[in-house]
Amino acid sequence: MTTSPGPRFDEWLDLIDERSATLRSVAGKAPSDARIPACPDWTVPDLLAHVGRTQRFWAAAVTAGPASRPPADGGLPDGAPTGDALEWSAHSTDVLLDSLRAAGGEARCWTWWADSGSASTAGAVARHHAQEVAVHVRDVQDAAGVAEPLPSGLALDAVDEFLHVGFGSMDGWPHSPARVALVADEGPAWTLILDATGASAVRSAAGEGRPEADATLSAPASDLLLALYRRAPWDDGALRVTGDAALVWQLVVWPPLG
């Protein structure tokens, strides 16, 4: 299994800070009763609260250090939004960033993906949450009618993280063994090998050969990530499938999304 070098720890922190600020900026201009298309039970304030609670949760996990269990709810300071929602959100981001900086990227902590073989460190949390908040920025933009692609570099690293961590944490593939290639228009590609043991990802740089696949999904990196999160439309031409289209859909709907 090969992985992308990705941004450095301090760059992930900058991405969390910048994407969280963008989330608040868009949320502050959107109608408070606007629904999130990808999560129709949520309004914009609901999503803002979700991201804030997630940031406080990860802050508690990082601060706790190595652990076999996630932090209990009682360990989350101010877990429910109070006062001005945007101020509470901004403080939530600060709580997470402060905990990450204090710990340093190599510090070990609890993560839900420990069994995937990927690192359970503050750096891995920073990388994962940069992806989380970037997707939720898109959610709020979508609700406000101002959807934009994710930044290309962030999207490329997020696809790599999703494939190695998200799919790498799944149990055995419930269908016949198969291979699916995901090819970013920016150059990098990944081949997912799916069998009874689960999924493993092989990354190929632009111009490199890659393993044969039963199906291929090609798109800009932003659309690849949004497809994995079941947020990209399949009828606008951005997502291009060759080979077994049913296999691609089986892959996309395989992991549960919280």
Rank of each mutant, 00 (worst) to 15 (best):
E11G: 12
L15Q: 13
S20R: 05
T22E: 15
R24F: 11
S25F: 06
V26C: 02
A30D: 01
P31D: 12
S32G: 02
I36R: 11
C39S: 08
P40A: 04
L48N: 00
H50N: 08
T54W: 01
T63H: 12
A67I: 12
A72N: 07
G74A: 11
G79Y: 02
T82F: 00
L86F: 12
L86Y: 02
S92E: 06
S92N: 03
V95N: 00
L97K: 01
S99H: 01
L100R: 05
G104V: 06
G104W: 05
A107W: 03
R108C: 02
T111G: 01
S118F: 01
A124Y: 03
V125F: 11
H128Q: 13
A130F: 08
V135P: 02
H136L: 05
Q141S: 06
A144E: 07
L150C: 05
S152D: 13
S152I: 03
G153Q: 11
F162T: 11
D171L: 10
S176R: 14
A178Y: 11
R179K: 14
R179C: 13
A181I: 13
E186G: 09
G187T: 11
A189F: 03
I193C: 04
L194K: 01
D195N: 14
A196C: 00
S200I: 13
S200L: 09
G209S: 15
D214C: 08
D214T: 03
A215P: 06
L217S: 08
L224M: 10
A227T: 15
L228W: 06
L228R: 08
P233N: 01
P233M: 06
P233H: 08
W234M: 14
W234C: 01
T242I: 02
L247T: 04
Q250I: 00
V252L: 15
W254P: 02
W254Q: 05
